[in-house]
């Protein structure tokens, strides 16, 4: 094992900072794309099932089971139909994002007080209008919390996507692991890991802001 060399790490960074930055952006982009797709699917599935106990239970259970599949195994399975690279990565990350988003959408929609729904109905709002202008806005902070959890989850899992030649910081980590014993092995792995953590923190902070900005003041406790 090579001893840790801080000066070496700093040199490594100064030489490769543009590569590192590019990988970070890639990592972020692949996570955001996956989250966006998962959000569309998850919110629609949640909207269709929240008031139907059996379908809702099935959807949540299915998404829960999906989450237990080891990411490496899922990625390996995806190589066959979708090949190496972005597509497989995005599909896998979307898959893992679904559970928190669907579950929180269902929970959020269920928490809208029945009296609010009844008065919306009594005032002449049809089902679609009720969903779009009453239920979704009230459930919004809870749905966003689901997306935030999904973001944390996928930022971690995305690092493994390098295994299927996917984009992002996993490349650094895998580089390090495959060149164990070489001078820069530790620097690669350490940089990749640190950047994943920093990205996770930044994204989480961003979600706090987004939640604050997009939630009605009337809903804030």
């Amino acid at each position: 094992m090579t001893p840790f060399d801080l000066a070496g790490l700093l040199t490594f960074w100064s030489r490769r900072w543009d590569d590192i930055l590019e990988l970070m952006v890639e990592h972020l982009v692949v996570v955001l794309i996956s989250l966006a797709i998962a959000m569309v699917i998850g919110v629609i599935v949640g909207m269709l099932t929240w008031n139907k106990p059996i379908p809702a239970a099935i959807v949540i259970a299915a998404a829960g089971v999906a989450l237990t599949i080891p990411s490496l195994a899922l990625l390996a399975l995806l190589i066959r139909p979708f090949g190496l690279g972005w597509t497989s990565t995005v599909i896998a990350l979307t898959f893992y994002s679904l559970l928190p988003i669907v579950r929180n959408t269902i929970v959020g929609l269920r928490e809208v007080p029945p009296s609010v729904l009844e008065s919306a109905m009594g005032m002449g709002m049809g089902p679609i209008k009720r969903m779009m202008s009453i239920q979704l806005p009230i459930a919004w902070p809870i749905i966003l919390t689901g997306v935030r959890v999904a973001a944390q989850l996928t930022i971690g899992i995305a690092a493994i996507a390098a295994y299927v030649a996917g984009p992002g910081l996993g490349t650094l980590i895998f580089n390090g692991l495959s060149s164990l014993g070489s001078k820069n092995a530790l620097n690669f792995a350490l940089t990749g890991t640190l950047c994943v953590i920093i990205l996770a923190l930044v994204v989480d902070a961003a979600f706090v802001q987004i939640t604050r900005l997009t939630t009605s003041r009337g809903l804030r406790a």
């Binding site: 009296s115 009844e118 008065s119 009594g122 005032m123 002449g124 806005p137 009230i138 009605s216 009337g218």
Partner: peptide, 22 residues
């Protein structure tokens, strides 16, 4: 039904104000 209800005022005990609206 929806169009009819716009012409009938409706007040319930739990009030049901929309919390996210002023």
């Amino acid at each position: 039904p929806s169009e009819l209800r716009r012409h009938i005022g409706y007040v319930i005990q739990q009030i049901g104000l929309f919390p996210h609206m002023t």
